[in-house]
Design a protein around this nucleic acid. Structure first.
Length: 149
DNA sequence: CGTATTTGACCCGCGC
DNA sequence: GCGCGGGTCAAATACG
């Protein structure tokens, strides 16, 4: 099956006032220190390990595809799904199954444009891709993005 | 039986 | 201070 994913446009700040600016949050600003550590343990307050939490590079792009999950060659494990406001379709959260690789990605299908899927990547992989996908590489090329993917 | 997905609970930052 | 919106965990379930 060849899911033809046509990249529409990356999330650039040079918008024309479209309602797609919410995805451009790739700013390294210390927006908020995510508590990626154990948050469940409220018993232990461990006030340590409070370092600067610089945000990982995050970039998003939209594609026109029939399937939500684009095959970029990596293996992802779904760890969450939440419904966002102003969107009829839920947003899916994925994590790279590679050990030590904390790359996250979220997929969101736009309501209104059912064929449009927004994919947001966060972080860089520590391991090379095992199953290269020419399709995904083509998308990155169109976006002028060439990370160590 | 091991691994991935599902799904509700939980947590946190922010706006009011 | 509280409620909302968004992000993550983890137990249960599905699937090979």
């Amino acid at each position: 099956m060849e899911e033809r994913c046509q990249v529409l446009f990356p999330c650039s700040s040079s918008d024309h006032g479209v309602d797609k600016r919410t995805w451009c949050a790739a700013q390294p600003t210390t927006t908020s220190s995510l508590s990626d550590q154990k948050m469940k343990n409220k018993e232990e307050g461990k006030p340590k390990s409070r370092k600067k939490k610089e945000r990982e590079a995050k970039f998003a792009f939209q594609t026109r595809s029939q399937v939500d999950i684009l095959d970029d060659g990596y293996r992802w494990r779904k760890y969450g799904q939440k419904a966002v406001k102003n969107n009829l379709f839920p947003r899916s959260y994925y994590k790279c199954t590679q050990e030590g690789c904390r790359v996250k990605k979220q997929v969101q299908r736009l309501s209104g444009d059912e064929g449009v899927v927004v994919t947001t990547y966060q972080g860089a992989h520590t391991h090379p891709v095992d199953k290269p996908s020419d399709n995904f590489h083509h998308i990155l090329t169109q976006m002028h993005i060439f990370p160590p993917f």
